[in-house]
């Protein structure tokens, strides 16, 4: 479980305001952050990664505290177990694909590195430098590099933004395969509605630094499992509804969830 509670003043597209995020992410989940440009989505990723310091707040991943401004705990990015795929990929021009992945790889983990290279489909490009790769290939290298340390949290900032539809689809498949395999808790910033439909367990819409909508993803493209609701409760602390079924717990800040009743049917997961 990743608990995020952050506050910081920030200049939004609409003017100065306050970024105020209180989110709990289930371990192994894949959450998509959406919202207009300048709403604070990338800032949230940067705060999680330790690349920016909030005014106040707390980040705890499982039982480890990464940030607690009250207790003056602030782990540097090197000590947070994260993989970060930057929007511009941030690949180093002096390194080949192999060197880029090995650069961050823990020693003696060659089998894992090879597995990663195969899943991301990079074996044919191992000796090429970023300038020789296409946008989609560069994103896959950035993804492989971000995962090579087996991070607890994977952060992706608009990985599909500059890709054509075919490259986007390939990257989505790779991301999905990696997520299914290792269940790395993932937070993905995206404007593409297709990412939401195919990838996400949960979609959080951020507007002016605040969570405007927080919903479990109802995947309409894939066969879903529907179960009756066994319990509905409202959690004050996170201001969210919790719906319990026989197999699943769903959470949402959507007030419409308060209208649901025990016994109603709800889609709890897809076959992915």
């Amino acid at each position: 479980m990743i608990e995020i509670d952050l506050t910081m003043p920030r200049l939004f597209t609409e003017g100065p305001g306050e970024l105020k995020m209180r989110i709990a992410l289930e371990s192994g989940s894949l959450t998509v952050l959406t919202g207009p440009s300048g709403a604070g989505k990338t800032t949230l990723l940067r705060l999680l990664a330790g690349l920016e310091m909030p005014h106040s707040g707390r980040i705890a991943v499982d039982d480890r505290v990464w940030l607690d401004t009250q207790q003056r705990i602030n782990l540097p990015p090197q000590k947070r177990s994260i993989g970060y795929v930057f929007q511009d990929t941030a690949l180093f021009p002096n390194m080949t694909v192999q060197e880029a992945i090995q650069f961050a790889a823990p020693k003696g983990d060659q089998d894992f590195v090879n597995q990663l290279i195969d899943i991301t489909g990079l074996r044919a490009f191992m000796n090429q430098k970023p300038a020789q790769l296409s946008g989609g290939q560069r994103q896959r290298v950035a993804l492989a590099r971000a995962l090579v340390r087996r991070p607890q949290v994977l952060l992706l900032d608009e990985p599909f933004a500059a890709l054509d539809s075919q490259a986007s689809e390939t990257l989505r498949q790779v991301l999905l395969a990696l997520h299914q395999l290792w269940k790395t808790t993932t937070l993905l910033v995206s404007h593409h509605s297709q990412d939401t439909r195919v990838l996400a367990n949960r979609v959080i819409r951020v507007v002016q630094g605040q969570v405007e909508q927080d919903e479990q993803c109802l995947n309409d493209e894939l066969p879903s499992i529907v179960e009756p609701i066994t319990n509905i409760s409202y959690q004050e602390e996170h201001r969210q509804w919790i719906i319990q079924t026989a197999t699943t717990q769903l959470r949402s800040t959507n007030p419409a969830w308060g209208q649901r009743r025990v016994g109603d049917l709800i889609q709890v997961s897809s076959s992915i």
Binding site: L51, F86, N94, R149
Partner: peptide
């Protein structure tokens, strides 16, 4: 780009290793 330095940090690299392996060669 600042993102190169930040990427190296998120990959667990120290500032000095980032300087010698990433920044100066570029």
């Amino acid at each position: 780009p600042v993102s190169w330095r930040e990427a190296a940090y998120t990959l667990g690299q120290s500032p000095s290793r980032t300087l010698w392996r990433v920044l100066l060669p570029n």
